[in-house]
Amino acid sequence: MNIVWLESETLAVPLPRPACPHQWTEYPYTTKEQLHARIAEADILIINKVKIGQAELDAAPRLKMIQLVATGMDNVDQAACRARGVKVSNVVNYGPGSVAEHAMACILQLTRRVPEWQALVHDGSWSASRFFCLHTLPMNSLDQMTLGILGSGAIGGKLADFARAFGMAVVHIERQGASSVREGYVSFEHGLAHCDVISLHCPLNDQTRGLFGDEVIAKMKPGAILVNTARGALVQFAAVKAALERDHLGGVALDVLDVEPPPKDHLMVSWQHPRCIITPHIAWGTESAQSNVGRLAIKHVDEFLAENQ
């Protein structure tokens, strides 16, 4: 089996090699122009964000399996793969703690206003103070706040554990437009109106694309914090910007954008705000999580090879 790994630089740790006999070809990255030539003789493709559609399947007549080193599979035309008999495999739950830690770190930064306090040190405000400390910015304690989690998978569950350890009340928010509210959940509207922090962990689909726009954000509790470590297109960036600028939102943390990497003139890159944290899709990226995603991806390849040798 000829295995081709198209994007090795998307991981900071090397992939282990399959145990079954194979030929291995690895590229640090692959452009659209390079793609067809590189996959022409591949039996198994290992990818992260490279897009595979009908044209790519036609260019890879030997292809039998696509293994993603990721959970999301929206970059692969799964219907076309099924029609061709190509197995598509992803990796789930490889690092829920990593993403949840990042979300919790953002919540702490924004509730304790760490970036703003640091700015007051460097602009001379602390040095000019009459007293030993500053009381410029109001802060709330986490044990007086409610976290709402939209998306009840492993990451949301891990974040709930972290938040409860800090004394936060935690609620799970039902999907928008749900005909009934599941046991242990609050309605979407109740979550918007009552949660001090809302963290997004839901998939991107036709129902959730652009969900947090002007209308939904306007229904959020004044001063609430919005955290998105899921998919960038869940939120509308102009709406986020407007809500922060009028102080309806108390803070925003985005680890994902709609285009990655974003152009320099992307709204969330070119605009800065002291209560807006933007990080480069790195919530998942602890070394242990990256090792896990590689180990699980190659485990799936080994299982496929064992079944098809």
Rank of each mutant, 00 (worst) to 15 (best):
G72K: 04
P96R: 09
M73L: 12
A83Q: 15
V99K: 08
H102E: 03
P96Y: 04
C81W: 13
A100L: 02
V76W: 03
A79N: 13
D77K: 07
R82Q: 15
A79K: 15
G85H: 01
A100C: 03
Q78F: 14
S98I: 08
K87W: 13
A83M: 10
V91S: 04
G72W: 05
V88C: 05
N90Q: 03
V92S: 13
V91K: 07
Y94C: 10
R82W: 12
D77E: 15
S98W: 04
V92E: 15
D74Q: 03
A83L: 12
P96E: 06
K87E: 14
N90E: 06
S98T: 09
R84F: 07
K87R: 13
V99N: 06
A83N: 10
G95T: 03
C81L: 11
Q78W: 11
A79C: 11
V86N: 02
E101S: 06
R82H: 12
K87V: 14
D77G: 06
G95D: 08
P96Q: 07
H102K: 03
M73H: 12
D74N: 09
V86G: 01
A100I: 01
V76L: 00
R82F: 10
N93W: 06
A80Q: 13
P96W: 11
K87F: 14
E101V: 02
G97M: 10
Q78C: 12
H102I: 00
R84Q: 12
E101F: 00
Q78I: 11
A80L: 11
E101T: 03
S89P: 00
A100W: 00
V91Y: 02
N75Q: 13
N93H: 09
N75G: 08
D74A: 05
V88A: 05
V92D: 09
D77A: 10
M73V: 15
R82V: 15
G97S: 11
V76C: 08
N93R: 09
M73C: 08
V99I: 15
N75T: 08
K87L: 14
Q78G: 10
A79G: 10
K87N: 14
A100D: 02
V99Y: 02
G85K: 06
N90W: 00
R82I: 14
S98K: 06
C81E: 13
N90D: 08
D77M: 10
D74E: 12
G95L: 04
V99R: 04
V99Q: 01
V86M: 00
G97N: 14
N90M: 00
V86L: 00
V91G: 04
S89Q: 13
S89D: 06
M73W: 15
K87C: 15
N90H: 01
G85E: 04
